[in-house]
Design a protein around this nucleic acid. Structure first.
Lengths: 191, 191
DNA sequence: GCGAAATGAATGAACGTTCATTCGTTTTCT
DNA sequence: AGAAAACGAATGAACGTTCATTCATTTCGC
């Protein structure tokens, strides 16, 4: 076992445990045990629990941005591009429930709160694509004339709630429902 | 100083601290200090931290249900009744940011998760009014033919996100924007 | 009416547990 | 052998909870 193997293993295991049990429900010793590693070893790769948690988030964030950019049509009808993006993110979250739950944990923890604050003016990386799309849509007058952040809430919030309900088993997000709900989101914001 | 005074004071102070700092960011000693009470005194009125947290939530829940029922028109056009309810809940949350943040904390904690699970079949009290409205709307074919839980997400989720952004100062939820966004929510679900 | 006894609300030091982090030792690799 | 990596027992801080003690107020006996 070499350097990168252990580091990756720790991150994989930590993602699973933290997503399922919450940040406070997972002692470092638990991560160490499941990764077949000594507690001290984790501190060879991460400065502390905080850094481990933060780094895990940044990794997922990068992955989502990459997924969204991949194959995204920069031209064409606004509605199609919108449905492409929302469908893509919905599918990613449904296919990666662990990562979804991790993001939720993070966003609702002090880490996420302060991150949101820090990004008050700077652009949030994963939403950058959405924001750009909305700005274009506003300029073209194809969406309602309300603050861009409201457009964002009307779009993203239902998707997140739906994924949560899907993971909890309250609803099944198949392709048909994904289509219907993303179209409904468009109906909400279209002029 | 009598019985109810102290109990009320503890609950008021706990609501503030817990809403602002999160459940794990507030030791019992902090609540005691701010309530000008000894730590042990809290245990005279509450079995433990868990019970205090749960009771606080139930109190807010009751208040919201009462607010929603108050003046709610049981007859009339579906759209008007929908806008009445969504506007009412939006105003309540904007006017009570502390309670909003507390609810968020609770819902994203193990308490809230297991509560959601427990209510899988039973009706959630605060949403019972919404659910009844949706069922009627479905029967009347005035909303889209998608699972009721999806209708719910399309409606409630954006409102919650908007309130959060309002409290953080990203947007100002005045009467005009409340009107625009609740109407947008209706556009999302209407047939 | 008045002193003595009982009450129980309030207190906060002490306890036991949990957990992140450290560091002296051991193992592995070159 | 020497350096790098890994180990895990030990440490100490934080926190929820307990309980022996205090004391203002009420009740009782005369």
């Amino acid at each position: 076992m070499q350097c990168l193997d252990k580091r990756t293993e720790i991150m994989t295991v930590a993602m699973e445990l933290l997503a399922e049990n919450g940040f406070h429900g997972v002692p470092m010793s638990m991560i160490a045990a499941k990764a077949n590693v000594a507690v001290g070893t984790i501190y060879l790769y991460f400065a502390g629990k905080d850094e481990l948690i933060t780094e895990l988030f940044q990794e997922v964030e990068k992955e989502i941005v990459a997924t969204l950019r991949e194959g995204f049509p920069t031209e064409g009808p606004m509605r199609e591009r919108f449905l492409y993006l929302t469908g893509k993110i919905l599918r990613f979250l449904v296919d990666n429930p662990l990562k979804f739950r991790y993001i939720e944990q993070f966003m609702n923890s002090p880490y996420g709160i302060s991150m949101r604050r820090d990004r008050l003016l700077g652009k949030t990386v994963p939403n950058g694509i959405f924001m750009a799309l909305f700005e274009e849509a506003i300029a073209d007058h194809v969406v309602k004339d309300i603050p861009i952040i409201a457009l964002f809430s009307l779009t993203i919030a239902p998707l997140i709630f739906l994924v949560r309900d899907h993971i909890l088993g309250f609803v099944t997000l198949d392709e048909a429902l994904i289509r219907q709900t993303t179209e409904a989101c468009w109906d909400a914001i279209k002029r």
